[in-house]
Design a protein around this nucleic acid. Structure first.
Length: 552
RNA sequence: GGUCUGUUGGAGAAGUGGCUUAACUCACAUGCCUUUCACGCAUGCACUCACGGGUUCGAAUCCCGUACAGAUCACCA
């Protein structure tokens, strides 16, 4: 046994602390019964993935609804794949969706909380303490196999059809005597540290997943690498040490981790740490050529959260969508609690689906549209402005130039039981209403009338309408005026009458409205005409009608 | 290939042995309403719960097998 201690001292001569010291440094959290401590632990290798947002959001939700703690830890143990600035970028995108931690990594220079550091590369000393202890106990050992050796081992195993990997008799270095290992180390040979597994593949272990329930998995017998030659631990080991000392109660992560659960449980076990509860979330999928696959950042635009941010999907609408795929009873709850915030919904593991949902953009759109339609004019203006400030300077200018005017446009048929549902995202607003601004109106090209309307007839209608135009009237009376102008010019008062006797009329009142609409908007489809006229005001309407007459 | 997980309509799903002639939402289709659009309203869209067998008076729901799909098998997380 002293040989192991000697070995441990040789490898980590500077490590003086013990696990007990660490336990003291990171005492238990003083939380109420039932409070969940969750964490989101991204690696800074790119921008935020939709699936990661899903995970992070759910972690946060569980923590907040139980009055617990949600923290962020940066898992940057792979320096080769690390992208500079990615950590902060990730956090910024998370924040855009209102997902932010109460503890942990906040930026490259800022952290919150007493369980830090929250960046794994800064915790190297902590891992070393635990690894040193493992070596002392003979439960971990240095491995000197080169990647070439490992590759050829693999080839042999594949050729002989045995399970691949570094285990049992194939784990060459586990049989090295400590003296031999020390010799090699003194000799300057490069090495990693492997966990010495005492597991047997044939043994089944019972595990419990909060979402999937009781499962039976094979025991781990692989001597996995826990400490890389670059001096940093691997994920399997690092997350375990961190979740232990940070006192995570629930590890909520993607389904792809389920197969490695036995490794983690085994590690907890041999260290004598109590394992947290695990919940493995289904992965968001996409169909391609009839096959399902994970949303892929390379192939699918919607896999990057920035896709939705850029286009101005309301972020809470997007979260609501995520909630519908997380807990299917969310939709029902929402329709019964229209006035409540999505954060009032209580998320449960038991209602979580086991297989990954196909990402449904149509549904996202529907939810966002519904949400935007229920906002007040002030709210939608605030939101549009905030979005425009980052993503659309033109819109920002438009709103800022006259906020009241913009609000008036937003307010058309808003409010009440059945509001208009014009927009699903903020980038649709400006194109839809640009004609209300002279600058855009002047630049626009005029749409042609439908085939029933001749330019001559349109001119006549517009000229006659100018004579009777009175925007102070209420909508009904205003519309009656429009009707009578139509009648004078040979248009039926309503569609029914026109249909009854098409030959007697040029068209119907809808056509008359279209003439006016095209005159003031240059397009055939707009929100309610009466309101547009009122907002534009008498003078502007008059000017646009006159201009139209002149070019027809 | 091994291991694990899953399979109810185009999508998300409810359903845990009789209340299901399979809820609800989205999508789609048709019609109505309507000054355009957007709404709204109405109707339709799984003669059946991957398939095959079994248990039972009775099965989407329990058991077995098959098929299919996904995840995973790194000094990446």
């Amino acid at each position: 046994m002293d040989k192991y201690i000697e070995l441990a001292e040789l490898i980590f001569p500077d490590v003086k602390e013990t696990i007990a010291d660490l336990e003291k440094r990171y005492p238990a959290r003083n939380l109420k019964e039932g409070a969940m401590v969750t964490r989101f632990a991204p690696s800074p290798t790119g921008f935020l993935h939709t699936g990661s947002l899903f995970t992070a959001f759910i972690c946060q939700k569980f923590a907040t609804q139980s009055n617990g703690v949600f923290y962020i830890r940066l898992e940057d143990t792979d320096q080769k794949r690390e992208i500079k600035g990615a950590g902060e970028a990730l956090l910024k995108e998370l924040k855009a969706f209102n997902v932010y931690p109460t503890e942990g990594y906040l930026s490259d220079t800022l952290e919150e909380g007493i369980y830090g550091p929250y960046v794994q590369s800064k915790r190297a000393d902590i891992y070393k303490v635990v690894i040193k202890e493992l070596i002392k106990r003979g439960q971990a050992y240095p491995c000197f196999c080169s990647s070439e050796e490992l590759a050829s081992l693999r080839e042999v195993q594949e050729a002989t059809k045995v399970r691949t990997g570094y285990y049992k008799e194939y784990a060459k270095c586990r049989y090295l005597k400590p003296e031999e290992a020390m010799e090699k180390i003194k000799n300057g040979d490069s090495f990693v540290i492997r966990f010495k597994s005492n597991g047997d593949e044939k043994n089944k272990i019972a595990v419990f997943d909060e979402i999937r329930g009781h499962l039976e998995l094979s025991e781990n017998d692989q001597d996995i690498v826990i400490y890389k030659s670059d001096g940093l631990p691997t994920y399997h080991f690092a997350h375990l040490v961190d979740d232990h000392f940070m006192h995570t109660t629930h590890v909520i992560r993607g389904e792809e981790w389920l197969p490695s659960l036995p490794i983690h449980l085994q590690l907890f076990n041999t260290l004598g740490f109590e394992a947290p509860k695990y919940a493995h979330l289904p992965v968001i999928m996409k169909v391609e050529n009839g096959n399902r696959r994970k949303l892929s950042k390379r192939k699918d635009d919607e896999a990057a959260v920035s896709f939705f941010l850029k286009q101005g999907y309301p972020t809470d609408g997007f979260l609501e969508y995520l909630l519908t795929i997380a807990n299917s009873n969310y939709e029902e709850w929402r329709s019964e609690n229209l006035d409540k915030s999505l954060y009032d919904f209580i998320l449960t593991f038991s209602k979580m689906s086991l297989d990954g949902a196909l990402f449904d953009l149509d549904k996202v759109k529907n939810i966002c549209k519904e949400l935007l339609s229920r906002l007040t004019k002030e709210e939608i203006t605030d939101r549009a402005l905030a979005w425009a400030n980052v993503y659309d300077k033109e819109l920002e200018e438009v709103i800022l130039s006259d906020r009241n005017y913009f609000e008036a446009i937003m307010n058309i048929e808003r409010g009440g039981e059945k509001p208009r549902k014009d927009y699903t995202k903020y980038d649709e607003i400006l194109p839809a209403i640009s004609f209300m601004y002279d600058k855009y109106y002047n630049e626009a090209t005029r749409e042609s009338f439908n085939e029933r309307i001749s330019n001559e007839s349109a001119k006549e209608v517009l000229t006659k309408y100018l004579e009777v135009m009175d925007l102070t009237k209420d909508e009904v009376n205003w519309f009656n005026d429009l009707k009578s102008v139509g009648v004078i010019c040979g248009y039926a008062e309503n569609n029914k009458e026109y249909k009854k006797n098409k030959d007697a009329y040029k068209g119907h009142v809808g056509d008359v409205a279209e003439i006016l609409r095209v005159a003031i908007a240059k397009r055939r489809q707009t929100p309610n005409l009466y309101h547009l006229l009122k907002i534009l005001g008498k003078e502007k309407v008059k000017a646009r009608i006159l201009e139209t007459i002149s070019v027809l």
